[in-house]
Structure formats: structure tokens, C-alpha cells
């Protein structure tokens, strides 16, 4: 891994009240690679995504570290230059397809935004590109969908539209923030396969946020396991799953329900592991 597309270095974020949200998070992402961010809710995955995209809520402050994209520090980049990157080079697949599309605008308008604003294509050309995109995400009757409003489409369809929108300008980096969490289990698999296929075809680097180790195993080259805003373990996904080094990773793997062995049931994370981890984090906080 010589070339780095996205480098997150020692990123720390605190809430207004002083609580630590992210603790010294670092990871590197090479072009075309997939990095998984795994953790329970509250692990800081979403905050990490927000810092990278420059949409940290006012109630949180970055206290250290930086994010480097293609050799450029995103935090010192002037706003217009950052805006130019967004959409054309960096895109987001959001978590909830039901709220991420504008209820008042038709799909064609929302899907052609990038072509018209960033590439200055005419409406007609942008529309043709958008139809091709919809076909690529396996939407039948793309022309009808183009003329629809979001409320006329199912959740799975809307997520396909959002995936199409994310890949529209062929960005180098896409951040997928739990893109299957809000969907039906049956649709989840299709959407995951779709994102994976698109990512490989377009050679897009992907930061994939999830709480599902099964998903990580399927598509991530490297993975960070997070807890309370701290990276507990990081490494190539195969190695991480086959020979976990941190007890929390081991416990997470054990907690993942096995469909092939339903008799094993659901295993919670052992209290001792959590206690040890909290002690580790507290020791780190005291030093930092």
C-alpha cells in the first residue's frame, strides 16, 4: 500500500461538554480499496464520516489530527475548493434512503444535479447519463422512475437511486454510511452486492461503515474495529477475522449470529472484555 488516497491521521473530536467522541483515529485508504469501519452504535463511526465530509455538527469540535485527501489537508482547504471536491471526487451513500432524497424534487432533477452543476452538461445530456446510471443500478423502467417523486418509490429503489447518484460523477472516494441498515433483510443483500459490483467496476475507493462483521468479510480489504471512538484493532480483513488480536474483535466475531449453526445462539460481548477495554481507553485518555 504505497499510494494513499485518503489518510486519516490521529483524529480526535470532543462534544461541547468535553466528552471524547473520537480518540486518535487513524487509517489509510489506497485508491480502489475498501476500508470497513465496524463498531456498535456510539462507537463514533458516523462522527468519523461527518468529520471527513466537513459536516460535523456545531455541538462537536475537532481537537486534533487531520484528514488528507490526495495530498491535500481537507481542513485547511478553502471552502470553494472543498465544495468542488464534494460530489465530483468524494460522494456519500447515506444511511436512510427514506429521508435522503428531497421530497419536493423529482428523481430526474436530483440525479442530474451533479452533471448539470459540476460538469455543466445540458439537461438533455444529463438526463441521458442519468438513465444509463439507473440501468446500471438495475432499475427497471428508468424513464418512469426519472419522472417519479421519492414518495412513489420503495426504500430499496430509493437506495438504488442514491447509489446511482453517488457514482454519477465517477468519484475517487465514496463513503457508505451503513447503507443497508434501514432496508429489509432481503433487499440488504442485493444492495450490498450492487455497491460491491459498482465499486469494483468503477475502481472507487470505499469507506464502508457498518455494524455487521458479515458485511465486512464480504467486501472490505482492510478493517478498523472501533469502540467508544477508539480504533481497537486494525488490519487486513482476512487476517483480522481469521486471527483477531484484540479480545473485543474476538468477542464481536463470536457475537455474530451463525446461520449455519443456529444452535449456537446469540452470544453477548463478555462483561470482562468491556471492562478491560474501558480501562484501556481510560488509561489512554489519562496519557493524552
Amino acid at each position: 500500500m504505497s499510494e494513499v488516497l485518503l489518510g486519516v491521521h490521529s483524529l480526535s473530536v470532543r462534544a461541547d461538554g468535553g466528552q471524547r467522541i473520537l480518540r486518535d483515529v487513524s487509517f489509510d485508504l489506497a485508491p480502489g480499496e475498501v476500508h470497513g469501519l465496524v463498531g456498535e452504535s456510539g462507537a463514533g463511526k458516523s462522527t468519523l464520516v461527518k468529520v471527513i465530509l466537513g459536516i460535523l455538527p456545531r455541538s462537536m469540535v475537532r481537537t486534533g489530527g487531520n484528514v488528507v485527501y490526495c495530498g491535500r489537508d481537507l481542513f485547511t482547504l478553502p471552502a470553494p475548493a472543498f465544495r468542488a471536491l464534494l460530489g465530483s471526487e468524494i460522494a456519500l451513500i447515506p444511511q436512510d434512503p427514506l429521508t435522503a432524497l428531497n421530497p419536493g424534487r423529482r428523481i430526474d432533477a436530483q440525479l442530474t444535479d451533479g452533471f448539470r452543476l459540476k460538469q455543466r452538461l445540458s439537461w438533455r445530456d444529463a438526463e441521458a447519463r442519468a438513465v444509463t446510471l439507473l440501468e446500471e443500478v438495475h432499475i427497471r423502467e428508468p424513464r418512469r422512475v426519472m419522472r417519479s417523486y421519492p414518495h412513489e418509490l420503495s426504500g430499496g429503489m430509493r437506495q438504488r437511486v442514491l447509489i446511482a447518484a453517488a457514482f454519477a460523477l465517477d468519484p475517487k472516494l465514496i463513503i457508505a454510511d451503513e447503507p443497508t441498515t434501514a432496508l429489509d433483510v432481503t433487499v440488504q443483500k442485493q444492495i450490498l452486492r450492487l455497491i460491491h459490483g459498482m465499486q469494483e467496476r468503477h475502481r472507487t475507493a470505499l469507506v464502508f461503515v457498518t455494524h455487521d462483521l458479515g458485511v465486512v468479510a464480504q467486501i472490505c480489504d482492510t478493517t478498523s474495529v472501533m469502540y467508544m471512538g477508539k480504533v481497537m484493532e486494525q488490519g487486513p480483513t482476512e487476517r483480522l477475522l481469521a486471527a483477531p488480536r484484540h479480545p473485543y474483535t474476538t468477542a464481536l466475531i463470536a457475537a455474530n449470529p451463525r446461520h449455519d449453526r443456529p444452535e449456537s445462539g446469540l452470544k453477548p460481548i463478555p462483561a470482562a472484555v468491556i471492562a478491560a477495554m474501558r480501562a484501556e481507553i481510560a488509561a489512554g485518555d489519562a496519557n493524552g
Binding site: R83, L85, G87, P94, T99, N102
Partner: peptide
Amino acid sequence: QDYVLLARIKGMSELRLILHE
């Protein structure tokens, strides 16, 4: 709203977000 956030990540200017989204 989420859709305005997503539009912001599409790189739209603040004025455009208000007027169009």
C-alpha cells in the same frame, strides 16, 4: 434535513441549498 445534508455533500453552495433544496 438529510436531503439538504446530502445536497451539501454534492457540493452545492449555501444559497443554492436554501433556494433549490
